[in-house]
Nucleic acid binder design. Structure first.
Lengths: 233, 233
DNA sequence: CAGGTTAATATGTGCAGACATAATATTAAT
DNA sequence: ATTAATATTATGTCTGCACATATTAACCTG
């Protein structure tokens, strides 16, 4: 007898996932090739290809031309982190967003920052320290360096109306970025701004964005205690 | 004159990204439909579809049937976090991996954990506390609850040979999982195990995995100070 | 003019066939 | 026996076509 045809790539994918999960196909084992699966499922090879390609991207299958497709032995699962602008992050929590510029000046960055950005140490940049608030409570403290050469209009922006974060996302864009997540003890300045105690554990995000080879901005985000970043695997 | 044909979906995608990045197509603006782009680029509509669908997944385009395709105004960029097994994470850093089981017992979970897992509070589970080491230095402290009903063979595992983490990845698998990242101050026990001081800021990962509706395991990972999780946007 | 029905349209996805490409296996040559 | 050339194979992707589906726009109808 023939099984009912699986003719959508999602249903093919679901069936393949079932076989992986229920150990019909063991980790490390090679699975039938696309043509065979297409014949079994009663669909076109392109449909099987779409299903398997997607599973390979998710890390559940290893695929190599000629060698075939295998079930990954130690699947490196992938979690997708959304990186929204801070205002949306606050508003999604149902809170009223506000931001306050603490300090802004044109100056050259410390050697460490210049090094990260591949810029000469004496390059004049825009340095900003700002606080993002949720329902008037400190939410996030931001320490940002902006490469003026790549975003000259930033000098005319009214930062009471829009945060640098949002302005940059809307007006400059970037082609690639680095993201580092870590934990740090609050220093005295951070503790006061975030209304917590010195030494409190802060969730910290360091982000550097580039437009081609040119650095756009480097920012350190220190979230107020209690912040949790959530996602699914 | 006609431009040279872009006949691979990557080259179409590159051209579309260029137009977004260089503001040929402004944020919020509608872009030509797939058929028009296919005609312009000299390729099939399916090729354009593949390129645009991928950009929509990355958050750079908004697509809706009939309404067309628009450049996202506030792109929610997505970062992909790899979740490898801890041994591989240590070995990728060039260190020698070792793990030590601190404590293991069959007992019922605290109400909080039972609640997360949707299990009756009196369900007997396997509770483990373990330390993962990199070059004999504490790397990660793990506090794990395992649902015995979903992984009965776990009771026969020799945890000197393999960590629960690795055994579960290889032998049970899961269909979905929740992941929460946060920062916490080290309590006295954690401080001693991780060879640091009480109150040190620790990077903490809470992970719960499910097989369909059945919970598999809930684990809290507290990384030793200095740990940084890195990725690209 | 309000509200519901119908038509139009852009994306989503399926199919069959073809060729490209990478990697392996086989064969031939030295 | 070792190395180089060649054949084989599974995945990767393009084409052209078709139909499905979601959503908007247009059209009635009272």
């Amino acid at each position: 007898m023939t099984a009912p045809a699986l003719q959508s790539w999602q249903s093919v994918q679901a069936e393949v996932m079932r076989r992986i999960n229920e150990r019909v196909w063991l980790p490390g084992a090679i699975i039938p090739n696309e043509a065979e699966l297409a014949a079994e499922f009663g669909c076109a090879r392109a449909t099987v290809n779409r299903a398997l390609r997607d599973l390979a991207e998710k890390g559940l299958l290893d695929r190599r031309r000629k060698a075939g497709t295998r079930v990954t032995v130690n699947p490196v699962r992938k979690a997708i982190l959304d990186i929204p602008i801070t205002r949306h992050e606050v508003e999604r929590r149902g809170a009223v967003y506000r931001h306050a510029l603490i300090e802004q000046q044109r100056t050259s960055p410390p050697p460490v920052v210049a090094g990260w950005l591949n810029l000469a140490p004496d390059t004049e940049m825009l340095h900003q320290r700002a606080l993002h608030l949720a329902d008037s409570q400190p939410f996030l403290y931001e320490d940002r360096w902006i490469n003026i050469a790549e975003a000259p209009q930033i000098l005319d922006v009214d930062f009471d109306t829009i945060s640098a974060n949002e302005w940059l996302v809307q007006n400059v864009g970037f082609t690639k970025g680095d993201l580092t997540l870590s934990a740090a003890n609050a220093d005295p300045v951070e503790a006061e701004l975030l209304a917590t105690q010195e030494g409190a554990a802060l969730f910290v995000v360091d982000r550097t964005t580039w437009n081609g080879a040119a650095p756009i901005t480097q920012v350190r985000l220190a979230y107020a205690p209690g912040f949790r970043m959530q996602t699914t695997i």
